[in-house]
Amino acid sequence: MRNWRLFFTALSCAALSAIDPAIAASPIGNTVQTSTTVSASGRVLEKSSPVFFNDILRSNATGIGQFIFNDGGRLAIGPSATVTIDKSIYKGGKSVQQASIQASKGAFRFISGAFSVKKINTPYGTIGIRGTAFDFTIRNGRVYILLFRGAVSFCRGGNCKTLRSSCDYLVAGGGKISDPQALSAGIDQGLNIGEVFPLVVNQSKLNSQFRQGTRNCFSRAAQRTPNKSISPAVNAAAAAAAPDTPDTPDTPGPPGSPGGPPGNSGKSNKGFGNGGEADDSGPNESHNPGKGHGGPHSDGGKSKGKDK
């Protein structure tokens, strides 16, 4: 009789696991904060809600979710985002293995933990991470990456480019990867950061654990507020940008410790900007300075995008 009870108990656990693997798993992290609707594999998340391996995190059109993993790594997702927490991140909820995140669409901020994720897969290439904090956005067939500290690379096939200077960004799409460029130069050329880096423009909506020093990321024109040649969202973000602080180690401290600040800007790539908004099969625009949504056109570079 005892053996039969053990058999049925094991069978029940297996059935529950098959229906919802999260039931039988230990959480790999927790929700720090959400606004409007953010879900994990169909579960509506609130503050302190657990996150499990293989969860699919989604936010609605106005949702923002902020998560901290067991090793101190942090992930924020912006509106209309979809990302899968890959099952290889943790084994048994304790020992860290080769880790990855599958990001499908939307805007994100990632801050490394003690062991943390080593790569983030996107539909257009792979982001390699080396003790860092950065934003990335997947939209309209392109990937935009903005570095705050550490180093991050983007690879597609055998082609790789690396960001090493704070406040530098790159754009990948159409089978090409732009050279790193200072975000301030992109703003001066008409880059619509309200669209491509919305978490920078809306840092006030983030918990303090997720905010980054961004003052050096904005152009001098944006910092001279009010400035009619710069979008209102950029003006507001530049005015509210966290002041710069001394550099911190690439690997962040325990949860709650502040992120590191930006440093010197990198070299210009002649205004690649955010490129065209075509699909990934579109033509290479790396030789068309400033071409793209929000970039300088026939009006002498005075055009500007509207932030969403």
Rank of each mutant, 00 (worst) to 15 (best):
179 D>Y: 02
186 G>K: 05
4 W>C: 11
37 T>L: 09
176 K>P: 00
106 G>M: 09
197 F>L: 14
112 S>T: 15
243 P>E: 11
262 P>M: 13
271 G>S: 09
230 I>T: 05
274 N>K: 10
113 G>C: 08
161 K>V: 08
15 A>T: 15
99 A>W: 04
261 P>T: 14
143 V>Y: 04
193 I>L: 14
114 A>H: 10
283 P>L: 07
47 K>H: 13
283 P>F: 08
102 Q>V: 10
272 F>M: 06
222 A>I: 08
157 G>M: 07
157 G>L: 08
49 S>L: 03
25 A>G: 07
129 I>Y: 01
260 G>R: 04
4 W>P: 00
280 D>K: 01
138 I>M: 06
235 N>E: 12
106 G>Y: 04
218 F>C: 06
122 T>Q: 02
111 I>C: 06
306 K>V: 14
145 I>E: 06
184 S>D: 14
97 Q>G: 14
300 G>P: 05
147 L>A: 06
210 F>W: 04
145 I>R: 00
270 K>H: 11
176 K>H: 10
251 T>I: 15
103 A>V: 11
127 I>L: 09
248 T>D: 05
143 V>H: 04
284 N>S: 13
184 S>L: 08
219 S>D: 10
150 G>K: 01
86 D>G: 04
94 K>C: 07
31 T>K: 01
100 S>T: 11
103 A>T: 11
144 Y>G: 05
287 H>A: 11
32 V>A: 02
220 R>Y: 08
165 S>C: 09
296 P>A: 12
129 I>W: 01
20 D>Q: 15
219 S>C: 09
174 G>L: 04
162 T>C: 07
206 L>A: 11
265 S>M: 09
112 S>Q: 08
90 Y>M: 14
60 N>I: 05
159 N>R: 10
216 N>M: 06
54 N>G: 11
67 F>W: 00
273 G>C: 13
269 N>Q: 07
